[in-house]
Design a protein around this nucleic acid. Structure first.
Length: 583
RNA sequence: GUCUCUGUAGCUCAGCUGGAUAGAGCAUUCGCCUCCUAAGCGAAGGGUCGCAGGUUCAACUCCUGCCAGAGACGCCA
């Protein structure tokens, strides 16, 4: 059910009937204020301007043919013409109730499945395996995962690609250090238990220890030339590091699996071919010893093209080469209709260049969409970015543990009697949910300041608020001694709070469509918060189990409750946030 | 220097293809627990939407210029 789409189609027909050309944008949107109805159509004004006619008169004509299509059809209660040509649509309560009843029966909550499913390759998380995951990896991981779940819910085929950083010069240093540890009879698992520390040790030796840097470079060469001993060492390192990441994914309730990993190293064999093709097609040229592409499409005012290095003068490959290879693999082998990549905003220029070059080279056909979804960096309280190499970064694992322990304290305070098993389950869901929601609810591509208070807040527009709304509903069903799933009654909508709630429930599909096309889970966060908030108002204004409430009203309201509970848990599930029956 | 992103309430942020009186949360102030969970509800105050022009019936939204912050820009990713 997509009310906006439905109304758009109807209004558009009415516009054509009023003499406007086919395809005129009806500009239907949710009304900005309650007094303007539930939806408003603003398209008449723009159209009138083009035709140089009086907008008010034109709107009158549109309303004339709109009235039978909406009011007589029972969809709208009334249609009002306002201002210079606004058409305000007040939806019919009984119609809303019917739509709601229909979506309540549907396991997809009335959200229709995509008619022609797309194959969408989503590249997200992509931690650097040389180090432990830190707060900077949070955004890509959870935003990507939410979008992936939304796509799947809508019926698209998603192929997750975890483009892990498992290659590069820094591994020479790490492998040299690991090799020494193993020679000293240490076990790899133990040596690499604290990756951060291991990296630091290796770096110190690299900077200070005589001869170590040279050995590190040797290891890079050996690694790249496929030396068996070195490869084995590398494999050990990678395996253990991946296990670290998997622990984080598990804690975060993120769907990434080992099989989704397609690290940088996976493209190694293809890189020479990429370069050969670019040279053969004369897209890349040799310049100052390196192979580069001059991109005229991105020239500056003086006509100087943008430069894109695809191979270093020493013959080494760069992430540009890898990303080009990835384009070809994803469109060619994975048959992607759309490729979505979540990385921080610093890589915006890079991905713009990749797309242009990949399209020129034919690695990326025109019918494959290529969406780089950038986001801002995580900044410290001082407004300066977290430097990955200077230490002082907050490990993701530590942040998550902190969140859970803070949640534990809060719950114990509110409910001292709680048994420990339940306590740990709720703490985990609340703590992790709070961290995820704090991040997911922001869309800004600008940088944002990392702050424990914001991240771990349990009040206001937070995950616990939504979880609380859900558990309140469960509490009602417990008290009423009926199960939410057994309610088959159609809700009757009378009170304004009930109508607002019903309308909001029916807007899930609209929201999901935006989340999917724009890659913006924050819209779903907003939606769910508004839904929960409307529910809280309903809860205060419309008693359900009180003595003076008739059975009829009671079951009607219980039906609404069931619908809200399902929508909340499904919506939160898409965000990767869990709900609980009590808290 | 060039390009990109950002600038909205004291703070953190929403604001959909231009629409009607710019919205939330936190913080502040005032109400509401003889119980459908107060992690809640209701209400109040709080704004030159960075600045200045322009486009038009209408601009936070589009265009130009400027100011401020961040980032990227030939051999890191």
């Amino acid at each position: 059910m997509n009310i906006k789409q439905l109304l758009s189609d109807i209004v558009q027909k009415a516009m054509v009937a009023a003499g406007l050309p086919e395809g005129t944008n009806p500009a239907v949107s949710q009304s900005s204020k309650p007094q303007f109805g539930d939806y408003q159509a603003n398209g008449v004004m723009g159209a009138a301007k083009k035709l140089k006619t009086n907008p008010r008169e034109l709107a009158t004509k549109v309303v004339e043919s709109l009235t039978p299509a909406l009011v007589s059809a029972g969809i709208a209660e009334k249609i009002e013409l306002a201002g210079p040509g606004f058409i305000n649509i007040h939806l019919d309560k009984a119609w809303l109730a019917n739509q709601l009843a229909a979506s309540a029966k549907d396991k997809q909550l009335g959200v229709t499945q995509r008619e022609v499913p797309q194959t969408v390759v989503v590249d997200y998380s992509a931690p650097n395996l040389a180090k432990e995951m830190h707060v900077g990896h949070l955004r890509s991981t959870i935003i990507g995962d939410a979008v992936v779940r939304a796509l799947e819910f809508r019926g698209d085929k998603v192929i997750r690609q975890n483009h892990m950083g498992d290659w590069g010069t820094q591994f020479g240093m790490l492998l040299a250090h690991l090799s020494d540890k193993l020679a000293a009879n240490e076990v790899a698992e133990t040596a690499l238990a604290d990756l951060e520390n291991f990296y630091r040790e290796a770096k110190v030796r690299f900077d200070d220890e005589e001869g170590f840097a040279d050995r590190a470079r040797e290891y890079v060469v050996k690694l790249q030339s496929g030396d068996a001993e070195c490869d084995k060492l590398w494999q050990q390192f990678i395996d253990i590091s991946i296990t670290h990441s998997e622990e984080i994914y598990h804690k975060l309730n993120v769907t990434l699996k080992r099989s989704d990993i397609m690290g940088e190293s996976a493209y190694n064999a293809d890189l020479p071919k990429v370069i050969d093709e670019l040279m053969a097609k004369e897209i890349a040229v040799e310049d100052q010893g390196a192979k580069v592409v001059f991109i005229d499409e991105m020239a500056n005012k003086d006509g100087e093209p943008s430069v894109f290095i695809v191979q270093k003068s020493g013959g080494g490959y760069l992430y540009a080469t890898t990303d080009l290879s990835a384009c070809r693999y994803r469109s060619g082998e994975l048959n992607a209709d759309r490729i979505v990549i979540f990385t921080d905003a610093r890589q915006s220029l890079h991905f713009k260049q990749v797309e242009i070059v990949a399209r020129k080279a034919g690695f990326l056909p025109d019918n494959v969409a290529y969406d780089h979804c950038p986001f801002g960096m995580m900044m410290g309280d001082d407004g300066k970015p977290f430097k990955t190499r200077t230490g002082g970064t907050i490990k993701l694992a530590e942040l998550l543990d902190e969140a859970v322990s803070r949640a534990t304290e809060l719950i114990k305070e509110k409910n001292p009697e709680i048994d420990s098993e339940l306590l740990s389950e709720i703490s985990r869901k609340v703590g992790i949910g709070a961290v995820k929601f704090a991040d997911l609810s922001k869309n800004r591509t600008s940088d944002y300041i990392f702050n424990w208070q914001t991240m771990l807040s349990f009040e206001g527009a937070t995950a616990p608020y939504l979880q609380y709304a859900f558990s309140r509903i469960q509490s009602i069903f417990r008290k009423a001694e009926v199960s939410a799933n057994s309610i088959s009654t159609k809700a009757t909508i009378t009170e304004p709070q009930e109508k607002a709630l019903a309308l909001k429930l029916l807007q899930l599909e609209e929201v999901l469509d935006s989340v999917i096309s724009e890659c913006t889970p924050n819209l779903l966060c907003n939606y769910l918060y508004e839904l929960a908030s409307l529910y809280m108002s309903f809860y205060e204004a419309c008693p359900i189990l009180k003595d003076d409430i008739s059975d009829e009203v009671k079951t009607s309201r219980l039906a609404l409750c069931a619908n809200v509970a399902n929508t909340l848990s499904q919506g939160l599930d898409i965000l990767g946030i869990e709900v609980m029956d009590r808290m």
